[in-house]
Design a protein around this nucleic acid. Sequence first.
DNA 1: ACTCCAATGTGTACAACGTATCGATGCGAA
DNA 2: TTCGCATCGATACGTTGTACACATTGGAGT
Lengths: 241, 241
Amino acid sequence: MAAQKDGAPLWERLERPAPTPRQTLSPQRIATTAVAVADAEGLDAITMRRLATELGVAPMAAYRYVSGKDELLELMVDHVYAELELPPATAGWRETLRAIAVRTRELMLHHLWLGQLPPSAMLALTPNRTAVSECSLRAMTGEGLDPDTAMAMATTVSSFIHGMTGSEIAMRQVMAGQGWSDEQQVYTSLAPQLTYLLGTGRYPSFSRYIHEGRCKNDPGWQFETGLEYVLDGIAARISAS
Amino acid sequence: MAAQKDGAPLWERLERPAPTPRQTLSPQRIATTAVAVADAEGLDAITMRRLATELGVAPMAAYRYVSGKDELLELMVDHVYAELELPPATAGWRETLRAIAVRTRELMLHHLWLGQLPPSAMLALTPNRTAVSECSLRAMTGEGLDPDTAMAMATTVSSFIHGMTGSEIAMRQVMAGQGWSDEQQVYTSLAPQLTYLLGTGRYPSFSRYIHEGRCKNDPGWQFETGLEYVLDGIAARISAS
DNA sequence: ACTCCAATGTGTACAACGTATCGATGCGAA
DNA sequence: TTCGCATCGATACGTTGTACACATTGGAGT
């Protein structure tokens, strides 16, 4: 618990003036370099030691600013979510949710490690992340919905985003881990698994999709198609009330 | 690569007869004990060493059956997905998808570690897991949809399931990590973060939900409500075609 | 201008992890 | 019985997160 001189949460500590102007280290610098490393080499490259060397500093130095690796990840999450540009308050609920969905997916694809976060960092209540929830929640309550329904709708879209993009990221991750660059190459290099399973003849529909599907290589199409399904379902409930 | 005497995938190796009847160890026994440990103490408790002591065996013994920790996780995943009872082929697409959704959620809540899997295990193509995909895919193709659309619809529901249940699990995980048992206690013990953020006044809609929402403590309601939204959206597309 | 003290970064250390390597052992075929 | 191989044991290495104690610094109060 080296980081907190009192019990205040990370974000409150962050907003009061820097304790001392001397520092070669700061939460900002820690966050940006950690994000740079994670973007370039994946989440596994994020090591307290690696971070320290990257900062030109002793292994334990960063512990003055984050209480441990979990808080480091929270810091990174909040840092990248600042990139996400929120739609204006004048936009309709559907445009708002769609924009947030598309941009969240882009954000996650720019920072693949967002798909591998441990539970604590996954639902960490960071300011910039909460701002996104606030934005979609406001869009729904503007339709005159009660808070519970509004939240359920926003959460539904959010769950779809993270589920869909999460598996898209997992796919890329596995690809990158093997050095496969082409997505078609995955289906042929994953072949030992795939051809065996399909060869059992127990998965006819799945097999048919593999052989006849045309959009296998386009996660973007799957994402936007599915997103419209979800938004349609929500729209039906709104117009019905 | 101690596990494969040839390059065959895990599941193919599994189905040919046991190499030798002597063994005190077997993939089955490894899977069941590993799942038992993970269920009781979380995924972090799954250690090759811990697994070995639990099996009453030397630390490296299990490497004879799985090539590493990743394959161990795949084995565990496939093992628990065998529990999932699939709806009959006679059921309609909506009943099929709903049943799979509800039961997948139950499965994940019975095995919380399913929400924390690394990317490789997350999208691992295991037999029992593929059987689930096959089932929902068959339900959709039965509606006369082309393979791509059928897959997009099945994937949409699947993404919703994993996104929603994933964050529900993350919540429980954080609770369990702190020893909080009551869910109401989370909202008051998460207070340092929450009250600070809400105190800034920058999140009015979010704040209103926290204070006025009534279903905050019922993830089951959120799940089933959101699921109906998603299914409604899909139904609209099916009847429109 | 000098002192002091809290804030800051350093150095060392430990337990636990995944797993490579090699040696011991015991079963089944000959 | 003997051979050979599948199986399991023992030991070891490099890496991880982080606890702990120490050195250093720079500004506030005298």
